[in-house]
Design a protein around this nucleic acid. Structure first.
Lengths: 163, 163
DNA sequence: CGCAAATGCTTGACGTGTCAAGTAGTTTGC
DNA sequence: GCAAACTACTTGACACGTCAAGCATTTGCG
């Protein structure tokens, strides 16, 4: 916090960091824009629907869903309210534990995610994989895993598919 | 948008994308947390102060500052209001063009950024560079530039240093 | 010149996330 | 078998970003 530490960034590191920072800002924004434009939902809402679509009975407890979708319980609660109003999700008390709430994907919700996923995956491919050589794609996998492990050590692999 | 397109993701691509998605969510959050904890400012506010600190006369027009800091004019206007209230920035009409506004870093603002930057750079180093080999750091630079160029084609290199 | 269009910035309403509290149900320990 | 502690979720106030006006100034052009 004070004075010059012995580890500033070299020119090359700075160039790398600037490029990465741009990706960190623009890529999520671009993905959100695509979803908003084509489906009228946020990336987090997409994740919620996607996680439910891949779960047994298309149903998950709110607490589990929050972890898989990568958000807080509060955030999920707000979003679930909207998704329920839209008719894509239904919430019912967990019969096995009265405290819990089960979120279930409705048929309309399933159609929504089925209609939305291909376009979203296509966007991911176009923005992330297409600009890279096959070798770089593999390098990015290793690099991403290393940074992810550092930044979020106990981040259970967030699960299954999604896009 | 409809039906199965011919380009889904392979298993390896999916693993790569999951790792990258985790980085995309967690790394900005971690950097924001560090700044909030150690300096009580957001990453965007940091960028604003950093850009001003590197500008001639520690002064930039609001419109230019918005581009360099990577935000909209409106967002910058709100933030500049807060930074001005904190005593770190001063706004004055541009004498050369009555429409314009010049933002200047005050002495207090300079001290703020000088005290904050080393810790922030250290965090970037710890989270991004330390987990990678030297070779991977160079690979990441190339990969980042390619994706950045794709996702934000006319993104003038956002400028100078920052952390 | 003079007025319409363009530019630069600010403002306010709105949506969404966070944080802190609140409610309901369940487990623990005596 | 009951009270205290804990767990699961919801709610409401607040902060911040966006979007659509709005205002002031400048530029373009007949």
């Amino acid at each position: 916090m004070d004075a010059q530490q012995p580890r500033w960034l070299t020119d090359e590191e700075m160039q790398t960091w600037l490029a990465l920072a741009r990706v960190l800002i623009r890529l999520p924004a671009a993905l959100d824009d695509q979803l908003q434009r084509d489906a009228g939902i946020s990336h987090f809402e997409y994740q919620v629907l996607a996680m439910l679509s891949g779960a047994p009975e298309r149903t998950l407890r709110m607490s589990a869903l929050a972890v898989f979708a990568g958000g807080s319980a509060s955030r999920l609660s707000h979003v679930a309210g909207r998704l329920e109003r839209a008719g894509w999700v239904r919430r019912t008390p967990d019969p096995a534990d009265g405290r819990g709430t089960l979120a279930t994907l409705t048929d309309a919700g399933w159609e929504k995610i089925a209609a939305t996923a291909p376009g979203h995956v296509e966007t991911v491919r176009a923005l992330v994989f297409d600009p890279l050589t096959r070798v770089q794609q593999r390098q990015l996998g290793d690099i991403g895993r290393r940074i992810a492990r550092t930044v979020d050590p106990d981040g259970s692999d967030l699960d299954s598919f999604s896009g």
